[in-house]
Design a protein around this nucleic acid. Structure first.
Length: 1194
RNA sequence: GGGCGACUAGCUCAGUUGGUUAGAGCGCGUGGAUCACACCCACGAGGUCAUAGGUUCGAGUCCUAUGUCGCCCACCA
């Protein structure tokens, strides 16, 4: 490297960033490998893997800047530091993006393209965007160990997924169940909840009469347990003896979706309507008593009145119906003529509608739950294409009456015909108008239908307790029953009785816990995982507390295929058929690994058969190969017959082909994206492969140190990582979860690509530089406040800015803005979201924001301060110096430095990035540049101490050289040290510029430090240099110098203020007299040359007792009274003094009254009281001076 | 419907157990081409801390209510 200092006048990030990037690469500076450092000296962060859906925006830039700050900081502090990078395959989102593109460009659906081809295309997309994302991260300076880059769908992650699925399957934590999915009838696919939007449309509430059947007619639909689920038994005493109305001929139900009645299987009534009303009333009265606002009271009163009204209008009938339901009575479902039972269930709300509710398990999540509780069949009436399906009654026969509806579009024509037929039958009681929120598919813009389908679930609740467990945890029934497992019966069998009984699950460390959710709850409540800011623990715990089972199957093609193979087999009394089953399976060769687990389901009941059948044995055959068979236990063909479905889960999906040969088909679905993301903290470290784990240091880096993410995925991702980490490895995956704020656009909306308000960080880097980007990001990282980021388009034609808000329309539905018009030159331009053709045609406007000027300006300031230092630091000596005898300004800046570093690290340790940055900025810009460098320029630039050459007219004697001897060498040594430490401190935030300047500093002043006080070890690269230590610099702390310097600053500012107000030309020297408290006079006099130099003072007198000079401008700041001679006139001053006198008297009065308040003196902290007294004394001194001035002037 | 957060200078935001005269950056005003930096320097003006009550010797800070905005979760026969 050259030893001459050649730095541009303005910092140019473009040249520096590329050069520094190459340098880090060349030194392999981001590489992490296990070594002998103990656990407390290791630091690991796994990146929240960005979706390969598209390029990164500023939200990602924010998230990753914060991580890199932590990573670089710890690396410099001597931690063995790993930042693990990678990307996420983001199942639904990515497939949707690619599908959409194919639809737009080729007009084809995925079904036309085919599974294999679609997946191939998505891999292409992934390759393209993964490359883009990684390059964006690198341009930002993220110091990830790129050699470890992973992808959630790569081979290692797939192994981790299979292993986890297998373990959970084997432990009974994964089951198959029915669930209502959001069905997009246009695209014929299930869509996720977050792909829905709601539209309010005008609809109707149809009240329909279902005829009551005679008492001797039973419904064929009634299942085993007539009397319903626990807790819903009718209260025998309630309502008895009341005047009961005559038995009704009809039950009235109300619905917004009359076409679903084709699938009704029951009508529910509350098991204790009177009790329920009473309970609600007393709850309301309690609320009323516990003091609410007038508005609330009115609302509660209204509710109470409604209940009272309901008691007379509906209650008698509901009680009657309750009794009829208890007696097993039946109603006739019109149109299809299906006798359906009246049942008792708390889902029926006596306050709503008629108080009775129709139950359609196949078309409503709540009804589904009711159906589960009462063992009702589910009659599907919806065909995948959105028409009425052929209706099959539970006994397997086609319903003869439904033919006239079959094939009709479900919610339009079928509805119309149902309503017309009901009306024709005279069963339509009334129609009400009603506004209804209807879910629409974001992708096809058509209304979605709930559609019953088979799904895989992970059991989150306490094992063997299921729904009841959740209820005991305080969650109301109607909130937890959405995903009722169909295997519940089997589960109860399995956990019933004696030695077979299992309780809870076993985690990776061998400990036992009630269930998966409970394990994750314990990790946080015990403090092993800390969520910061702490308030987010609430949403984490609340969500886990519900212990809702996790639906993990997705009807997609892009993702991890579910590692389950299935086959339907019929077993009859025929010995041969039975033999086929055993034979086929007996001869499956599994190879060396043990690794299959199976569930066998009885197709008629939908329930798994006796757990004995589930046992699988494998043994070594004579030829040494491992062979597996299903142990048929004590069964014989007489016991086992009918249709059965075998589900075999394989640990190693490669083995699937053996099962395929036996006619087993792999489940077509893929796993929820979060199933692979949840394994990220250890799958990236090599789990479950032992060799890979060793190579990547699983034992060394796991558990990781911190997770940095934003709040919307606390439940989806964070909680599940804790669960799988604990289950698979027995340790929580991280110690800290830092939840940062969000970057919003100028309107306060979340940035997202789909909204069109996202900003590519590379655009910002192009214009302002990566360090400027990072600086601004860190500056915005406050604890609670989401930060607004006004974004402008930079016109490619004229360079003017057009605010994004003027272009991107506000609305619920996302709109991609691909082109816009420049405000200034009126020419159109393309945005980053435009396609290539449009971009080429119109020119692309970059996104920018003036916010980043803050960062750019800081970079430039740092660059120039360093440039000044470097041009003057050649030949800086490295000699022993005694800090205590350095000039005040040197002692002051060193004290400030040590203060700053401690505060900076204190803030970072608490993830207070913005606060840390402010501390560093204030030190560098205010203390170091504006004061220290300005002050020491004469010393540094070789003209000797202040006052030695140029200040011929100073009347104050310079301090004696024996005391301070402010030599040039000392100043240079101090400046070199401060610059060195500042660069180290700022490096985590702005790595490129600091690394570049560090190289210059190294070349010019290879040895820096304060011998005997602070001696940093030399390093070629700043990225691996030692961070300024927290401890060991106590010698630099110097409260006395800090206090003296503060006085000097106050005096300097005061004089500048007075000069400015009186329009004194900058170069003109003024004569100043300062009155100060006697005990401070000596110290001030000794440093008077500083004030003289910085405030342009010729003669400076400092005295405890001075009289007001003629025509002086005066100012009282703190305990100082400053007079600048001959720059004002006495008349003007008189006016000013009078004003100030009045103000001072007011303040004194206020202080006196406070101090004469006995309560204050007695109760406030003594220090606070003393501070008030000091302040009063100061004011009183000021008052005396002011009065003297007044006397002199008057 | 439940939960969480925000409301402080024209704008974007700090303000850590309640305690001097509430801060910063940008913007604004005045002055400055001085040999590190005009992406700069010096100085200044700007605030009834959303509103109303309360607790306290003392409230931007704690409590209650109201309003506005945002986020998360649930739900709407």
């Amino acid at each position: 490297m050259s030893d001459r200092v050649e730095l541009d006048k303005v910092y140019n990030p473009k040249t520096v960033e590329g050069e520094i990037c190459a340098l880090w690469q060349q030194h392999d500076a981001f590489r992490a490998a296990p070594d002998e450092r103990p656990p407390e000296r290791r630091y690991c962060i796994v990146i929240p893997p960005p979706n390969v859906t598209g390029a990164l925006h500023l939200g990602h830039a924010f998230n990753n800047t914060l991580q890199d700050i932590l990573v670089r900081w710890h690396r410099m502090r001597g931690f063995n530091t790993l930042w693990q990078p990678g990307t996420d395959h983001a199942g639904i989102a990515t497939q949707a993006v690619v599908e959409k593109r194919i639809r737009e460009t080729e007009g084809k659906t995925r079904h036309q393209i085919g599974r294999e081809e679609l997946v191939r295309r998505i891999w292409e997309w992934k390759d393209q965007y993964e490359a883009r994302i990684l390059s964006q991260l690198k341009l930002m300076g993220c110091s990830c160990d790129w050699s470890r880059t992973r992808f959630t769908l790569d081979e290692g992650c797939s192994r981790a997924v299979q292993e986890t699925f297998f373990r959970w399957f084997k432990a009974g934590l994964i089951y198959r169940g029915k669930r209502l999915v959001n069905w997009d009838t246009a695209l014929q696919t299930a869509v996720a909840d977050d792909e829905l939007y709601y539209d309010t449309i005008k609809g109707h509430f149809w009240h329909i009469r279902y005829p009551v059947m005679a008492a001797n007619v039973a419904s064929p639909l009634v299942g085993g347990a007539r009397a319903a689920a626990p807790g819903t038994r009718p209260d025998a005493t309630s309502g008895a003896g009341n005047a009961i109305p005559e038995e009704p001929t009809h039950v009235v139900i109300a619905t917004t979706r009359p076409e679903t009645m084709l699938g009704d299987v029951a009508v529910a009534v509350h098991p204790d309507p009177e009790g329920e009303l009473s309970r609600r009333a007393s709850a309301l009265r309690a609320e009323l008593a516990s003091a609410a606002s007038a508005k609330d009271r009115a609302a509660i009163d209204a509710k109470l009145e409604a209940i009272a009204e309901r008691r007379t209008s509906h209650l008698p009938l509901l009680i009657k119906l309750r009794d009829m339901a208890a007696a097993g009575r039946t109603v006739m479902l019109p149109l299809v003529n299906r006798p359906i039972p009246l049942i008792l269930d708390e889902w029926a709300d006596p306050m709503l509608g008629s108080g009775c509710v129709k139950i359609t398990p196949a078309h409503d999540p709540n009804d589904f739950a009711v159906g589960e509780r009462h063992k009702l069949p589910k009659i599907n009436v919806l065909a995948p294409e959105g028409t009425v399906a052929p209706i099959v009654e539970p006994d397997g026969t086609r319903n003869p009456n439904s033919a006239r509806y079959e094939g009709l579009p479900f919610s339009t024509e079928a509805r119309a015909r149902v309503v017309a037929d009901i009306e024709a039958a005279g069963l339509l009681e009334k129609i009400e108008d009603r506004e209804i929120e209807i879910a629409h598919s974001d992708r096809s813009k058509t209304p979605i239908e709930p559609y019953l389908s088979d799904q895989w679930f992970v059991r989150m609740g306490d094992l063997g307790r299921g729904i009841e467990g959740a209820q005991r945890a305080g969650v109301p029934r109607r909130e937890v029953t959405k995903f009722t497992p169909i295997f519940d019966e089997w589960e109860r069998e399995r956990t019933k009785g004696g030695a077979e009984r299992t309780s809870g699950i076993t985690l990776g460390d061998g400990s036992n816990v009630a269930g998966l959710a409970q394990a994750a709850i314990d990790a946080v409540t015990s403090g092993r995982v800390k969520i910061l800011p702490e308030r987010y623990t609430k949403s984490y715990l609340d969500w886990l507390g519900e212990k809702r089972d996790w639906c993990i199957s997705r009807q997609l093609w892009w993702g991890h295929r579910i590692p389950v193979w299935r086959k339907r087999l019929r077993i009859s009394n025929d010995e041969d058929a039975f033999e086929i089953v055993t034979h086929g399976l007996d001869h499956v060769i599994l190879g060396e690994t043990e690794g299959a687990s199976a569930v066998v389901v009885d197709c008629t009941t939908g329930q798994p058969v006796d757990p004995r059948l589930r046992r699988i044995a494998d043994y070594l055959a004579a030829d040494g190969q491992r062979v597996m068979e299903i142990d048929l236990g004590g069964f014989n063909s007489g016991e086992l017959r009918g249709d059965f479905e075998f589900f075999v889960c394989l640990r190693d999906a490669e083995r699937g082909k053996h099962w395929y040969e036996l006619g087993f088909m792999q489940d077509p679905d893929v796993l929820d994206t979060w199933f692979s993301s949840q394994l990220w903290p250890f799958s990236t470290l090599g789990w479950p492969d032992p060799m890979d784990s060793k190579r990547r240091g699983l034992d060394y880096y796991y558990p990781t140190s911190a997770l940095v993410t934003s709040r919307e995925i606390i439940t989806l991702w964070v909680a599940r990582m804790v669960i799988s980490g604990l289950y698979n490895l027995g340790k929580e995956p991280f110690h800290h979860v830092y939840i940062h704020t969000k970057i919003l656009d100028a309107r306060g909306e979340t940035m997202s690509k789909s909204k069109g308000n996202g900003v590519d960080p590379v655009d910002i880097i192009d214009v302002y530089g990566a360090d400027a980007l990072r600086y601004t990001m860190a500056d915005m990282a406050t604890e609670t406040q989401d930060a607004r980021m006004p974004v402008d388009y930079l016109c490619p034609h004229c360079g003017a800015l057009t605010p994004q808000t003027s272009v991107v329309p506000k609305g619920k539905q996302p709109i991609d803005v691909k082109k816009a018009t420049c405000r200034a030159c009126k020419k159109p331009f393309a945005t980053v979201w435009a396609d290539d053709a449009l971009k080429a045609d119109l020119g692309v406007a970059r996104d920018t924001s003036e916010k980043f000027e803050i960062g750019r300006n800081f970079c430039n300031k740092l660059w120039n301060a360093a440039r000044f230092a470097l041009t003057n630091l050649a030949g800086t000596p490295y000699e022993r110096l005694d800090v205590r005898s350095l000039p005040t300004e040197d002692r002051w800046i060193l004290a400030r430095l040590s203060q700053t570093i401690a505060a900076f690290q204190g803030c970072l340790a608490q993830y207070r990035f913005s606060a840390a940055l402010k501390v560093a900025r204030d030190f560098f810009w205010d203390s170091l540049c504006d004061w220290y460098i300005e002050l020491t320029k004469p010393r540094i630039q070789g003209s000797g101490p202040v006052g030695a050459v140029s200040d011929r007219d100073l009347s104050v004697a310079r301090p004696s050289r024996s005391e301070t001897a402010p030599t040039s060498g000392e100043a240079k040594q101090v400046l070199a040290f401060c610059l060195d430490q500042t660069l180290r401190m700022l490096h985590p935030i702005m790595p490129f510029i600091t690394e570049r300047l560090w190289r210059e500093l190294n070349a010019l002043v290879p040895v820096r430090g304060l011998p005997g006080v602070a001696q940093p070890t030399p390093s070629e690269l700043l990225i691996t240099a030692e961070f300024p230590p927290l401890e060991g610099w106590s010698k630099l702390n110097d409260p006395v110098s800090l206090a003296i310097f503060e006085d000097l600053q106050t005096a300097t500012r005061g004089i500048r203020d007075l000069r400015s107000k009186s329009n004194v030309p900058p170069r003109e020297r003024v004569t100043v007299t300062i009155k100060s408290a006697p005990e401070r006079v000596a110290a001030l006099r000794a440093q008077a040359h500083i004030v003289q130099h910085l405030a342009g003072v010729g003669t400076l007198a400092i005295d405890p007792a001075v009289t007001r000079p003629k025509n002086a401008a005066s100012l009282h700041v703190g305990a100082l009274h400053i007079y600048v001679h001959e720059i004002s006139d006495d008349a003007r001053e008189l006016q000013r003094v009078r004003t100030e006198l009045a103000e001072t008297e007011k303040q004194i009065a206020s202080k006196r009254s406070k101090l004469s308040n006995e309560n204050f003196v007695a109760r406030a902290d003594p220090e606070v009281v003393q501070a008030e007294r000091d302040r009063l004394a100061e004011l009183e001194t000021r008052l005396i001076t002011l009065r003297e001035s007044l006397a002199e002037l008057a």
